[in-house]
Design a protein around this nucleic acid. Sequence first.
DNA 1: GAGATAACCGTATGGACATACGGTTATGGC
DNA 2: GCCATAACCGTATGTCCATACGGTTATCTC
Lengths: 214, 214
Amino acid sequence: MPRTADHDARRRQIAEGVRTIVSEAGLDAATVARVARASGMSVGLVQHYFPSKDALLLFAYRHVMDRIGTRVAQRVAEGEAARGTIAASLRAALREMLPLDHERRSEYRVAQAFAGRSLDSAELAEVGAQTSRRLRDQIAVAVGNGKECGEVEPEVDTGLAAARVLAVTEGLAVQLHREPHGRAGTHPLAEAADAVLLPTLESVFTGTCRQYSR
Amino acid sequence: MPRTADHDARRRQIAEGVRTIVSEAGLDAATVARVARASGMSVGLVQHYFPSKDALLLFAYRHVMDRIGTRVAQRVAEGEAARGTIAASLRAALREMLPLDHERRSEYRVAQAFAGRSLDSAELAEVGAQTSRRLRDQIAVAVGNGKECGEVEPEVDTGLAAARVLAVTEGLAVQLHREPHGRAGTHPLAEAADAVLLPTLESVFTGTCRQYSR
DNA sequence: GAGATAACCGTATGGACATACGGTTATGGC
DNA sequence: GCCATAACCGTATGTCCATACGGTTATCTC
């Protein structure tokens, strides 16, 4: 047997290169040659791990979106462990989607760039759609738990509430990214984000939890 | 004097070509040659009216965003003329931003494509930011009018409410575009849109108008 | 009706890039 | 230690495209 390499690790390394380039200079700047350099390898090696540039970009997109989805899920889990209210842990999770710091801002830019290119490619579009569904389902679960617990009125339409919460979060992300300095009156970004997010959350989570733990 | 042409009309004609191509096949498909063909003219003529491709795209982006902004303003004006509630005319205006029919869907796709490319170009980003500010200001005016009229409680923060309404609208647009068939339970798109939009509007416009006209 | 000038056309050119490909190197098993 | 084979490299190739450019046509003015 010849020498071996960790294919998955290599691919992730390349995807990180894509992420860096795209977030700094946009998707058009992500040529194979530049991606190779950014990942510290040669053009030929990148070709070795991906059959085409399309496959490369698709993988990178999935990579980034998975990271976001995972982080959101993680925050929800943390919230449950901390035994806070469901509304509080959902708030923490949703904030993971907002471009509030360098890391998340970078991810947001990448997601935006790929969303734009999704007009061409059904495959890319599917990645975005899947991520969106996954997020909305996670929110819906939180709302459902809220019903059992007493934080949410039983007659609330779970799916609709989830759609509304996701909509306000995504829309807020758009605005935060366009105006990173914060609006006239409101000072730090974090406050502005809560000022938009919390009223919507409170309109769904109107009650308080009856029992100590689910 | 030699023969003359309507420069503005020509430029708009070209911008329409861009819009068609981008909405059907994405920004990458918008080569100068294809734009020329789609607008029914030669490559040379397109060059005659735009100094560079960047300038061409910038103009086209402005063109599309202006159209959206104008349509929104128009709906608000219509609502005032009809003497309905402010909430009702705002609802009509916001629906102009949603990808509910072919026309608006096409515009949404173009806006999305350009938003993605805005990572490269500060000029493109500025167009998006301006449009966003314009929309939020229009909403803020509506909320302000609502206060005078009695539809909105005086202690509501106008800017924040506007940001929230815009956020939910933009976020809803994202979801509608990704799932054009409508979600499991909800039948036509229009209903689904209202189901998300109206609760948010009602959380701002809680009262009824005291006087017959402003 | 003449000619000046803008409107308009088609092709040439040079650059950028994705991909193909032949070659080199290192390392697992024997 | 040797050899098979994957890991890895650099360059060649052909395509696509934005832009440059020289040429043609129509029309407004006088």
